[in-house]
Design a protein around this nucleic acid. Structure first.
Length: 499
DNA sequence: CTGGGGAAGGGGCCC
DNA sequence: AGGGCCCCTTCCCCA
C-alpha cells in the first residue's frame, strides 16, 4: 500500500514536470510565432512606407513637371477654380494651395518647386496681399534621412513676411512656437494631423477651412489641408465614424500602444480614406472621372439609390418620411453614422430646415471641444458643401420648401428644396454630391444630366443645329441662337427706364 | 459677342 | 389617373 502511495506520488510529480515542460514549450512556440509575426508585420510596414515614399516622390515629380513645363521661369498656378468647382482634378492633389481670398493666382505669388537631390521639396506660395485675410501658406515636403515620413506644414503667419522660397528648410526661419501650425504627417498611410497644441490647431484649422467661405465663392475654397478637394468627395455627404482597430482589452493580442507593428488605427480612419483615395488614384481628371463613373458613381448604381426627403402630404407641411433605401453613395463607403443621426433627427424633429445633415453635423461639431483630425477633415468637407452650392441653391430658392409643398413633395435632403418628382430631386442632389454619371467618351468631361452631355457632344461633332434665319450664324445652343437673335431684333438687354 | 457648362422646368410616352 | 423616365427647352453664368 505504501509502495502504491509512493508510486502515485512519483507519478504525480512526473506528470507535473511533464506538464510544466509542455507549458514551457507551448509558451516558447507562442513567443517564437509572435516574434515572427511581429517581424513580418514590421517588414510589411516598412514595405508600405517605402511604397508610399515612392508614390509621394512620383506625385511631386509629376507636379513639378507640370508646373515647370507650363511656366519654366516664374511658376504660377492656373486658376483651377472652375475645374475644382466642376469636380475635376487637374493636378497633383496635395501640392498646391490656393491662397484664400484670391480668386486667381497673381503674378506676385511665387511657387518654388525644387526637389533638389530628390530628398527635399518645398512648395511655397506667398500671398502678397497685405490684408490680414491673406495667409501665408507654405507647403513643405521634407524627407529626412531616416525618417520616412513626409511632412507638410501649413502655416498661417503674419502677412508681409518676406517670401520664403528656399531649398533648405534650415535656412527658413523657424516659426515661432506660439504660431499656430498644422503638421500633416502625410507619409503615414493616411494623413494624420499632429498638433502642437490642440487649441491652436483647432483655431488654425478653422481659419484655414473657412478662408474660402469668407469670400463667398465655392470655387475659391481650399480642399482639406490645402488639397484640392476631390470631386464628388468634395461634396460627399457620407462621413463615417473613425474605426479604431487596435484592441485595448489588455490581452496578449493587444498590440496597440507600445507595439508599433499593430498601431494601424489611423490607417482605418475613414475620414482619411478620402485622402487615401486621392493618393491611390491617378489624379488626372480623366482617370478620376473614369474611376468615379465606373466604380463608385455608376449611374445604374446611383439611380437605384433613394436619398430624398418625401413630404408626407397627410401630415401637413412637415416632412417626416425618410426615404433612404440606401444612405450611401457608392460602394466602399460604409453607411455613415451621420446619416443615421440625421435620419433620427428628421424623425424626431420635424424642423428639417435647421436639421439637415450639414447643420446637424456642424452643430455637433461646433459642440466638440476636442476636434480630431478626421473631424477637421470632415468639417471642411461639410463646410464646403454647406457654404457653396448649398447656399447658392438656398439663395436661389429662398430656402426650405419654397413653392407649393403639395406639388413639390420631394425635398432635397441637403437644401430642402422641393421638387415635383423623385427623379428631379435625385438630379438636383447631384449638385450637392458632385456626382456626374454621364461621361463624355471623347473627353474627360462628365455631367450630372444626360441632356447636358448630349449638348456637350456637339463640341466634338461640330454640329450646330440652331441657325440664324437672318444671318449665316449657327449655334450649338438654342439659347445662344436666341441670344444672338436679340441683336437682329435690336433688343437691348439693359435699357434705361423712361424718366 | 460667342462658346459652353450648370441647373431646373416642362411635356410626352409608357407602365 | 398617377408616377417614372426621358428628352428638350430655357435661363443663368462664366470664360
Amino acid at each position: 500500500m505504501a509502495n502504491c502511495m509512493v508510486f502515485h506520488t512519483q507519478i504525480t510529480s512526473i506528470m507535473e514536470v511533464l506538464a510544466n515542460a509542455a507549458v514551457a514549450e507551448i509558451c516558447k512556440l507562442v513567443d517564437d510565432d509572435y516574434a515572427v509575426f511581429r517581424l513580418e508585420m514590421s517588414q510589411s510596414q516598412k514595405e508600405n512606407t517605402a511604397l508610399r515614399r515612392k508614390l509621394q516622390l512620383l506625385e511631386l515629380k509629376v507636379a513639378r513637371e507640370r508646373v515647370l513645363g507650363s511656366r519654366p521661369s516664374s511658376v504660377k498656378i492656373l486658376d483651377r477654380s472652375r475645374g475644382m468647382a466642376r469636380g475635376h482634378l487637374t493636378g497633383g492633389h496635395s501640392s498646391f494651395v490656393k491662397p484664400a481670398g484670391c480668386n486667381k493666382w497673381r503674378d506676385d505669388q511665387s511657387i518654388t518647386v525644387d526637389e533638389g537631390s530628390g530628398t527635399l521639396t518645398k512648395v511655397v506660395i506667398e500671398s502678397a496681399d497685405a490684408e490680414a485675410a491673406g495667409p501665408r501658406v507654405k507647403l513643405e515636403k521634407a524627407e529626412g534621412d531616416e525618417d520616412p515620413r513626409l511632412s507638410r506644414n501649413i502655416q498661417t503667419g503674419a502677412v508681409g513676411v518676406s517670401p520664403i522660397a528656399t531649398e533648405d528648410s534650415t535656412t527658413a526661419p523657424a516659426p515661432p512656437r506660439t504660431q499656430p501650425s498644422i503638421t500633416e504627417v502625410s507619409g503615414m498611410p493616411n494623413a494624420v494631423l499632429k498638433s502642437e497644441t490642440d487649441k491652436e490647431t483647432l483655431t488654425v484649422t478653422h481659419r484655414l477651412l473657412h478662408t474660402g467661405s469668407d469670400h463667398g465663392s465655392d470655387s475659391e475654397r481650399l480642399g482639406p489641408l490645402g488639397c484640392p478637394p476631390a470631386p464628388g468627395l468634395e461634396y460627399f455627404p457620407v462621413f463615417h465614424q473613425s474605426q479604431v482597430h487596435s484592441r485595448g482589452d489588455g490581452d496578449t493580442l493587444d498590440t496597440g500602444g507600445d507595439d508599433p507593428s499593430c498601431s494601424y488605427s489611423t490607417e482605418m480612419d475613414s475620414g482619411n480614406m478620402l485622402l487615401s483615395l486621392e493618393t491611390q488614384t491617378d489624379l488626372s481628371s480623366g482617370d478620376w472621372n473614369r474611376y468615379r463613373s465606373s466604380s463608385v458613381y455608376s449611374d445604374g448604381c446611383l439611380d437605384k439609390k433613394r436619398e430624398v426627403i418625401v413630404v408626407d402630404e397627410g401630415d401637413g407641411d412637415v416632412p417626416l418620411t425618410w426615404n433612404a433605401d440606401q444612405t450611401q453613395l457608392g460602394e466602399g463607403h460604409s453607411q455613415g453614422r451621420d446619416f443615421i443621426d440625421y435620419k433620427e433627427s428628421v424623425e424626431t424633429n420635424p424642423d428639417v430646415a435647421t436639421h439637415s445633415p450639414l447643420h446637424a453635423f456642424r452643430d455637433r461639431d461646433t459642440m466638440s471641444t476636442s476636434m480630431g483630425s478626421s473631424d477637421s477633415h470632415r468639417r471642411v468637407l461639410f463646410d464646403q458643401l454647406l457654404n457653396s452650392k448649398d447656399q447658392r441653391a438656398m439663395a436661389q430658392e429662398g430656402g426650405a420648401t419654397s413653392g407649393s409643398s403639395k406639388e413639390k413633395r420631394f425635398l432635397c435632403m441637403f437644401c430642402n428644396k422641393g421638387f415635383s418628382c423623385l427623379q428631379k430631386v435625385e438630379i438636383h442632389q447631384r449638385v450637392h454630391t458632385g456626382v456626374k454619371p454621364f461621361s463624355c467618351t471623347q473627353c474627360h468631361m462628365s455631367f450630372a444630366q444626360a441632356g447636358n452631355l448630349k449638348i456637350h457632344q456637339r463640341v466634338h461633332t461640330g454640329v450646330k443645329p440652331f441657325s440664324c434665319t437672318q444671318c449665316h450664324m449657327h449655334f450649338s445652343h438654342s439659347s445662344s441662337l436666341k441670344r444672338h437673335q436679340r441683336i437682329h431684333a435690336g433688343e437691348k438687354s439693359f435699357s434705361c427706364p423712361p424718366v
